[in-house]
Amino acid sequence: MPLQLAFSIVLLVRGHNEPGGGFIGGLVAACGIALHGIAFGIPAARRLLRVPPPMLIGTGLLIAALSGLPGLFQGQPFLTGLWGGSVPTLLAGQLKFGTPLLFDVGVYLVVAGIAVHLIFTMAEDQ
């Protein structure tokens, strides 16, 4: 289970250069939590997640929207990509930081949040 979450993050991070990205990473994370929910019950999955899913959605949307602002401040259109330095990582190769990565993180959170939220809601509905 933690492995799947970790893997989803790797997918997210390497998404800019290889298959992966926010959508896929978020879906993988959601699948992992859903699996946990089916195996141990929804309350357990909720506890595992710690934060309520709507929180994830909100945070993700906020991050994605905020990542568009730096470009705006530089006098360029909203959501223009700006890149900073980079650090080497073990699994994902050279990791570069920039607003698109931040945006991708937002997407990741939103997608994961939505999928988990939907499944929780549906599963708890009797």
Partner: peptide, 11 residues
């Protein structure tokens, strides 16, 4: 700064 063109388009 991206090699996965699909993802670059998206984000």
């Amino acid at each position: 700064q991206g090699r996965n063109v699909v993802n670059v388009i998206l984000v």
